[in-house]
Design a protein around this nucleic acid. Sequence first.
DNA 1: AAATTATATATCATTATGATATATGGTGGT
DNA 2: ACCACCATATATCATAATGATATATAATTT
Lengths: 173, 173
Amino acid sequence: MAANSTVESIILGCLTTHPMSGYEIKQLISLSTSLFYNASYGSIYPILKKHEESGLVSVEELIENGRFKKIYHLTEKGYSAFLTWLEETPQPITMRNDMLVRLFFFNNLTREKQSDITRMYLDHLRDFRQRLENIAPAAAAYSDPYKEYTLRWGKDFYVFLIEWYEKLLSDLE
Amino acid sequence: MAANSTVESIILGCLTTHPMSGYEIKQLISLSTSLFYNASYGSIYPILKKHEESGLVSVEELIENGRFKKIYHLTEKGYSAFLTWLEETPQPITMRNDMLVRLFFFNNLTREKQSDITRMYLDHLRDFRQRLENIAPAAAAYSDPYKEYTLRWGKDFYVFLIEWYEKLLSDLE
DNA sequence: AAATTATATATCATTATGATATATGGTGGT
DNA sequence: ACCACCATATATCATAATGATATATAATTT
């Protein structure tokens, strides 16, 4: 019923595999969806509290190795709300692409500084792409083809970006 | 001097071409950078006030056709702060990609619903791409190659997305 | 003449980030 | 054995940004 936001739904989605703590949800998001949709502790903990109040999750409080811990379980109502969200029309992409803003105003820089910035950015893109390649084997162990698809998207996107800025750099020189 | 944020710098960047009102800045952003970096009135007006207090812009208040209006001028200090920001290392991309979150959790849907959502999304992408093609002639009139580059990036990105989801759809079917 | 759209500024509740605070358990080095 | 550091774990807060709404007038369309 509840018209959940995307972050609210990601949290429910994480809990579909197994019950976990807020900390583990954050870890999972960082390793998987963060490339295309991130969430901070400052979002996650308040949303978990809200989900509890709405009955979408239930909380199991326990002490593990002497450490206090809250394990969140997805309720039937929570899974139903998640499915309702999942079937909705996807929202358009929004992004914060700092490099493109700089390119937009490149006419204020010398040709040399333009090339410097583009080269620096290409280094970052190549580095990031390599990190995505490195986590590929771990993701393959998921045995969920859709998790692999989203990782594939990330790699394809960074290949697109690298080729695009390589072309830009050669145009500048 | 001032460690400006990207939105703060976009506003300064807009004023490098000619003095304009907050309303005109918003219009300009919507037509140009919004694809890769958007800003709302709720950001723009408070930032303009802040820029005025920092001496990065000066304000000219006037009445045009009986309507009250504030025209913001970039000061030398403002242009200098803009250049300082422009030469900094670009920040990594962050995005909100709702469709990829749904794909990440596609295992919770029937094959038919998966295809429906993907097809709907492809319609949206094709529509959006067409709108980008339509504004191309207007942007060409800028006579600034870097403005054209960023528009080119937008079009290339949407071509990438359309091809990617066409492939996904054929995999699903 | 009426309705709608465009111009123009401003604020507000809500959402989200990034940083910080607090605390304990485990690991590695000397 | 001790210390430093890192991982686990929850929580809050100032700051930032959105999307909506309020207000007002001019211009355009019906």
